[in-house]
Amino acid sequence: MSFTDAQIQRYSRHIILPEVGGKGQQKLSRAKALIIGAGGLGSPAGLYLAATGVGTLGLVDGDVVDLSNLQRQILHTTASVGASKVESGRRMLAALNPEITIKTYQENITAANILMFLAEYDIILDGSDNFSTRFLLNDACYFAKRTLISGSIFRFEGQLATIKAHEGYPCYRCLYPEPPPAGLVPNCQEAGVLGVLAGTIGVLQAAEAIKEILGIGETLADRLLIYDALEMKFRKVTRPKDPRCHLCGTHPTITDLSGDYTVSCAL
């Protein structure tokens, strides 16, 4: 596959980077990235992956655009209120880069459909808004041997980790063994969030995904990045693999997706 003149011009600022080059740009154009949630994190991540020229982007989201989304979900415009998020997102991404393939799925991720999705993509970005989906994605990506870029946000704080448990790195359960029960940790969209925080973490997810595709740089495969927007502090902490992990430890008890992934919405 070779690039057209227009593509060479479009991606020229990448191609002149020794770490990317023509070969790296080819890798990007052959890559297939699945974005779970076309919302706060999925919007900036999707925009940059599209601009970057990641060849196939999948968008999964069952929701429609609400006026209260627009404070942070920059894939959508005021004119899209009421439209499906994945369709609104597809329009925006296609306008930005018509050279790439965009696939949309207007549904939510479940234990029944997740493995079919993963089969078609190389790398997954978690921009979901609940613990059920986060634990389900962690487990499914481990079984399907897919790299998962996990980002999450709450009020003024964000967390970011690259999950490659199938390559011997820790999984999300090594970091947090179990989701919280209702009432202890807020996890609903009703919780406030600084709009631009979604941009910061979503763009960092895109950066990590691009580095994974290119195979360059330091990864967050054994670190957790914590960002505090109020104090303007980034911190990296260690994230060891837990030999007692129920999923990826030495005596796993989770061997398929038949477990209970329901977690009540907690505020």
Partner: peptide
């Protein structure tokens, strides 16, 4: 010492 709970927001 840092206390770091899991957070789930994203949409």
């Amino acid at each position: 010492v840092s206390i770091v709970p899991a957070i789930a927001g994203g949409r």
